[in-house]
Each structure stands twice: as C-alpha cells, then as structure tokens.
Write a protein that binds this DNA or RNA. Structure first.
Lengths: 255, 255
DNA sequence: TCAAAAGTGTTTAGTCTACACCCATGA
DNA sequence: TCATGGGTGTAGACTAAACACTTTTGA
C-alpha cells in the first residue's frame, strides 16, 4: 500500500522539515488512521495481463499503488482517487474484493528506514508505523489510455506482466493473487473483461484476454459463438492491416 | 454494528464512572479506532432463513451483532470472536463479503443519547462517535446448535425471519441485503448451504433452504438429481415419523 | 497456389426441463 | 383404498465440445 507516499507528498508540498512533536498533527490527522487502500490495476497489452506497480526511488522495493482515506471521504471515492492519480483516468471500473487485516501483515522496520532516508524521523508510535488494515480494490483499465504517473516518492510506476512481477513489499503478492482470483470468478457474470479492452478490438484479442485471465486455452469457435450470443458486441469494420489471412472483424462493446 | 456494546461492557466490568479526560485512554485504546465488524448470522429453521439480531434494552433499537478489533488481533479472529460470543459456537463458517465505508453511514446522535442514558458522557470527539468503517461478515450456523446470547447492554438477542426484520439502526439493512446477495452467489460454487443444515436432514429440508435463499421455487426431481450428483451426501436411514406418505431418506453431509 | 488465420456448419454428447409414473405410509 | 408426499424414469429441448469446411489475404 506504499503507506508513506501520500504522507511524504504532503510533507514535501509544505516544505516542512521540523520534527513531529505530536503524533496526530495536521499531516496525519487528515487521514483515517489504521486504514489504507491497495489497488491492483489490471491492464491488457501485447496479449498479456499486466499490473501497475510502483518502484521506490533508487531501490528495488516494489509495491501496489495505494493510499489513505480522508476523514470526510467515502471509501469508494478514495479508491477512485487513488487509481485516478496513478493512471490519469477518470471513468474507472473498480471492484472491492477483499480486506487484508492480519495483525502483523506489515513489518514497520523497512518503512521506518525509508522514512528516515527521506529525512524524517518518526516517533516510536507514529501512526504510519502502527498496524494497517488494507482494503483491496481491483481496477480494470484500458491500457492504451493510461499514462502511468509516479509521485515524488516513487519514481517508478510501470506495467508488469503477471508472470513477471518482481518481489513485492509486505503481503502485496497475496493481494495480487486474490485480486486475480476475484477477477476470474467475476469474468462471466459481470462481463468484466470489456473494461480491459480498447474501444475497438478483434475477437482474437478478446479471446487472448479470456485465456490469460482463466489461464487456459479456449476453443475458438465456441468462444466466438458464446460471446456473440451475448448480443453486446457491434461489428465495426472488416478491414485489418497485417497478416496473410482473412481480415478479422473489429468489434465494439455496446451498452 | 452496535458500536457501544463492547465499550460499555468494558466500563461496566470495571465499574468506572469517572468522566473521560483523554480520548485515547485505556477503555478505547485496546481497540482499533474507526474500524468495526458487523456480522450477519444466518440460521435456517421452520423452513425459513433467519438472522440473529440484537435489541437494545427497553427500546426498539435493533442492530446486527458486531464488535471491534483488538489492536493485536487478526481480522478473521475478531470476526470469529464476535460470532462466537453471540452464538456459543466455536466452529463457524464465516465469509467476509463487503466493507461499508461511506463517510456518513452512521449518525452519531442516537448513539450519543444511548451512551448518556447509560450514565456516560462522551466528549465531542470521542472515538466511538467518530466515523466508522465496518467490515461485513456473514456466518452460516446450525440453528439447532445456537443459544443466542445477549450481553449486558443488549438484552435481546433473537432470530428474525428474513421477511420479518424490524427496522435496523444505521445502514444495517443494507448490510443484511448485501450479505444475502453474497450468500446467493456463493450458494452453488462454495456449497455453502450445508453449514446451515443440522447433521441429518431430508432432501426436502435442503430444497426448502435453497428455495428461500434463491427466493424461487425449484423442481423437485431436478433438485434431487443435482444435489445427489455432487456426491457429497450420505444416506443415513429410511425412517421418518410423521405424515401419511413414503418415508424420506435422511442425509448426512460428507467431507 | 499455398499457408495462415478468420468465420461458419455440423455432428455428437451431455445436461436440463417438465412431466409421468410408481412406492410407501397413515387415516 | 385413498390422498399425500418421496423417489425415479423418460421424452424433448437446449447447450456445449470437437472437428470439418469455406473464405480471405499476402507472399
């Protein structure tokens, strides 16, 4: 959940480097304590399902994009804000999938050293070093529309293929796994996949997406019929530049 | 989430009626602030799906059983504890289904007056009157094994049929509704229903349960075949005391 | 004209629906 | 013996799986 991002961003913005005397001063008290949001942002590109990850400056610490909840902010709104800040998108498909609340899911030690490396010395009981319960959301976005945006603390914000994910901090690997499971079970009943597609796509693209999410090969004719029978696709054009074969149709999602 | 129960129980236990000077003193600091658990405990009896509700002393305030999370307690453990305290059971099927986190989901006014009616005057910023994010769990229990247990604050703890639920405090009606939806979608893939059955039951009992959960009639032969084809039932006895008709088999859930 | 991939047809098997039928039981 | 509800049989409809076939395209 890269706990410190929001907090340190705040500090930098205010150029305020004095030591904290009070644990619940302005910087911390704007957010609910002990609660965070972690977002698993899925995109589809190059026939691969990818996840947006943050990398910590000059180190190999990777983490899910995340953030806190303002004291007057609805949970849903906070989640939208978090994803929006990293992708630049506004209309985002978001699904709350699980809460991660083991008492010792996050070791505060590495966090403390990162904070100190940024010239900040947190007190023993600083709220950022206390236990955090994290609410997991997954977002489905159109890869082509996203401009990954790092912040002042994390200088990396990039896509990683699902089979290419670097070691993540805390229990973020568990979170990604759970998000994927959830996506999988929602695939059919919520028609969730179309949020991952660009405006126009071929049947083959869509099938490749289904195959990566479900992690198994599907039969082409069966897939085509199944999807078309849903009556949610509109044929756009018959043209396609490329291979030495029949030109596939382009489809558009309707409704 | 009957926010005050745990808290007031604590106070009564310690017979400590001095006014609070510090918002984060012993009474409050044992729990995570701003986070609560609400449990929708389902039972099945008399061919009806029922929910366990708490009633506040000498009033018509009904609420879901709930509680807080100790600072060193896993979320799952807290949920088990909460359900355990109200049902007396230990092996409980629990499923986390949704988090309710709108900023203004709970009006603090009625809570304040209840606290005051109990001889306690909370400060303006008391943690119990602040915003709470609530994590919803539903429990599936064997109705016949439960002894509903009120606590010192709520004197009522009783089963209510789903179509017979009194007006609930805060957004607890939304929570019940969402729990039911979740139960419904999990019915088939998680074989969740058997947790609601006593050890031995007839096919008709089971069908009645499915029918109330799904809220629709099912065809008897189809249901029988579908369930038996799962190979998770064992026939126990052919005997049955009662009606003027063929004796139904008793079944037992295996594995 | 050939290979490759797209789109459609077709056969078969399996599953689900709806109803029919027989069985056991107590009045 | 009759009404009632429990268990199974079965014909038809629907759905899914597997494979075959045709079409379009660039080399």
């Amino acid at each position: 959940m890269f706990i410190f991002t929001k907090y340190l961003s705040y500090r930098i913005k205010h150029m305020d480097n004095r030591k904290e005397k009070n644990e619940s001063d302005a910087a911390g008290s704007d957010y609910m304590h002990g609660l965070a949001i972690d977002a698993v942002i899925f995109g589809f590109h190059d026939h691969q399902l990818k996840v947006l990850l943050m990398q910590y400056k000059r180190s190999n610490i990777y983490a899910l994009p995340g953030g806190f909840i303002h004291k007057e902010e609805n949970l849903e709104d906070a989640a939208h804000r978090v994803v929006s800040e990293r992708t630049g998108l506004t209309d985002i498909y978001l699904e709350q999938f699980h809460v991660f609340g083991d008492a010792h899911r996050a070791d505060p030690a590495p966090l403390r050293s990162i904070m100190m490396a940024n010239g900040f010395e947190p007190g023993e009981n600083h709220w950022l070093l206390q236990r955090f319960v994290s609410i997991g959301y997954y977002a489905l976005v159109d890869f082509t529309k996203v401009t990954p945006m790092p912040d002042r603390i994390f200088d990396g914000c990039n896509w990683y293929g699902l089979n290419d994910i670097p070691p993540l901090m805390q229990d973020h690997e568990t979170i990604v796994k759970k998000a994927l499971e959830s996506l999988r079970t929602n695939l059919d009943n919520k028609l969730v996949a179309f949020n991952l597609m660009p405006e126009e796509f071929t049947m083959n693209d869509l099938q490749a997406l289904y195959e990566t999410i479900l992690d198994k090969k599907l039969l082409r004719p069966a897939f085509q019929r199944k999807i078309l029978s849903l009556n949610i696709l509109q044929r756009i054009a018959k043209k396609w530049t490329g291979g030495a074969h029949k030109a596939p149709y382009l489809y558009k999602f309707i409704r």
